[in-house]
Amino acid sequence: MGLEYVRISPGFEKYMPRDYVDLVKFGQFGREVDVMQLGQFKELVEEHPMCAGCYMAYFIRIFYAALPKPEDTIVLGTAGCARLALSQAAVPFIYGNYGDTNAVASGLKRALSIRFPDKDKDVVVIAGDGGLMDIGFGMTMHSWFRKEKFTTIMVDNEVYGNTGGQESGMSPKGVQLKMAPLGKKFEKINAVQLAIDSGCVYVAKISPTNPKRIAKVIRRAIFAARKFGPTFIHAYTSCNIEYSIPTREVLADARKREKEDFKFFEWMTDEVKEFLEEIERKEKEKKKQEVKS
């Protein structure tokens, strides 16, 4: 971790793959990019095997562009679709056993705090609704009860996408899926309320319709976790395969859900609010200075 780890040793440039050289020369390491610059720099995440039009893949794309310090970040994932892209990014990735992510992240974050007491090392879990709210439920909750200082992002496609369409606790009531042919009998879990009640200091719910807002939420969650405690983002990331959404309609569907049950929601403690306002004020000032000079 750190910039030294990314740098290509002198003389070795010509032997490195083109994509790696591009990453070092035109990528995000050591400099902050704005998501609005997408398409004009080399992204951290590479080609991956997620389905055409998958908006979980889209969310992950924005996630990497939003990282405040990719060279000092570790991402944790688990079984499920997201890891197919998370494992193809130039940011260290740890694959926890299914359901283990938040236990592994707790240990990792504590170890990093001991090893690098004066540095911010960001730990981020990205896992599915099944991984976090069903099978990993206990570990997710206990990381929050214990106030572990890392970010959890649930990419909620409301199904077990990777294993062919079983219902999850996050599937909406009544929905029929390939392996839930009678329709789901129970309500969708209120993950956001659980997070607030269990000790998270910053919580957001978002549908991926606005890249600037996604990036803002991700950065806020990461900054708040550095200092105060667990943070949680609940993102709607549709599975066009299991929900039979024509790919051309995927963004339209995200916009529709934003008007219904995925209205943008953000909650934080007062001290987090104050802290974030200060960071964002400084960022704005810095940008103003850059424009001037």
């Binding site: 080609e47 997620m50 039009g53 794309r61 995927v250 963004l251």
Partner: peptide
């Protein structure tokens, strides 16, 4: 800003235009 694939739809500042890196496009039509 809305393509799901990394570095697939890109932007040329010089020509003020978007362009597709064909090898990376999955044809989703978003």
């Amino acid at each position: 800003l809305f393509c799901p694939e990394p570095n697939c739809l890109n932007y040329k500042e010089s020509g003020h235009t978007a362009w597709v890196w064909t090898d990376r496009c999955k044809g989703c039509e978003i």
